[in-house]
């Protein structure tokens, strides 16, 4: 396959960036999207140019490192996958592919396609845990029976990989889907109910401090989420937050 890549290049956070054209040839359908970028980078290095910087690590869709807006969609055209799981067979010979970083005020660009998503860490530090010591002196695991449905819902929320596609997809750059998934995974379990009030208040406060936008129920986040995190989580978080506020 022969392709024309249009890639965002930016030296660092303080420099202006621009789109640069890179024609590329010899791309096979079995390559992953990131392997296609590896090919480009190898060519750039051998010419003595600086390779394109992007985040990636596990390359199997679970670490949440990789990002990229590909032709205007976070993680590209396929559904329920991350960029590293996207394969070139989804494109055809002669295509132009526009590759940009995830864009949001709360995700400043570090270099080229790499952004700073540490805001997500700070939201979780504000309360995304159950305050139990790790001493091992807890009750037997089966002393807390949990309804299968609740356990499954909690698990589904907990599969969020924190990639930030929800923020990138949202016209308001809202982090509601991410934050609500993290709130829900604990709110759905009896162990997590004890601190539920404080947790939702602290996490929402931090989310607002980071400069993410508000949710206007467009639902683009759910469509683009590589893990299929449901909008129901946002409804649950709103309910939790309302109840917490009512309690004072």
């Amino acid at each position: 396959m022969k392709l024309l890549l249009k890639i965002w290049r930016q030296k660092d956070a303080s420099s202006p960036g621009k789109m640069v054209d890179y024609p590329i040839d010899g791309i096979e359908g079995d390559m992953s999207f990131l392997e296609m970028l590896d090919v480009l980078n190898m060519q750039l290095i051998e010419k003595g140019d600086e390779p394109v910087v992007f985040d990636h690590d596990c390359r199997e869709g679970i670490c949440g490192s990789c990002s990229l807006m590909i032709n205007g969609e976070p993680h590209g055209p396929d559904r329920l996958i991350t960029t590293c799981q996207l394969h070139m067979r989804k494109f055809k010979d002669g295509d132009t592919i526009v590759i940009e970083p995830f864009r949001a005020t709360a995700f400043p660009v570090i270099k080229d396609l790499m952004v700073d998503r540490s805001a997500f860490d700070r939201i979780q530090q504000a309360g995304g845990y159950i305050s139990v010591n790790t001493s091992g002196n807890t009750v037997d695991a089966n002393a807390i029976p949990i309804e299968k449905e609740a356990a499954d819902d909690s698990f589904n929320a907990a599969t969020c990989i924190g990639c930030g596609a929800c923020v990138a997809a949202c016209k308001n750059a809202s982090a509601m889907l991410f934050t609500s998934a993290k709130v829900s995974q604990f709110a759905l379990l009896p162990q997590g109910r004890v601190e539920a009030t404080e947790r939702v208040q602290n996490m929402v406060r931090q989310m607002d401090l980071e400069g993410f936008g508000n949710c206007t129920n467009t639902g683009a986040c759910e469509v683009e989420c590589p893990k299929g995190i449901s909008l129901e989580n946002i409804a649950r978080m709103n309910r939790e937050y309302l109840m917490a506020t009512a309690k004072g």
Partner: peptide, 25 residues
């Protein structure tokens, strides 16, 4: 020996392990 503690610990922390319909692990 410590393996049994790990499961207790993780459940206390809210790790959503797979469960049977009876609610047990």
């Amino acid at each position: 020996e410590e393996s049994v503690n790990i499961i207790d610990q993780c459940v206390a922390q809210g790790v959503p392990f797979a469960r049977e319909y009876g609610g047990l692990l």
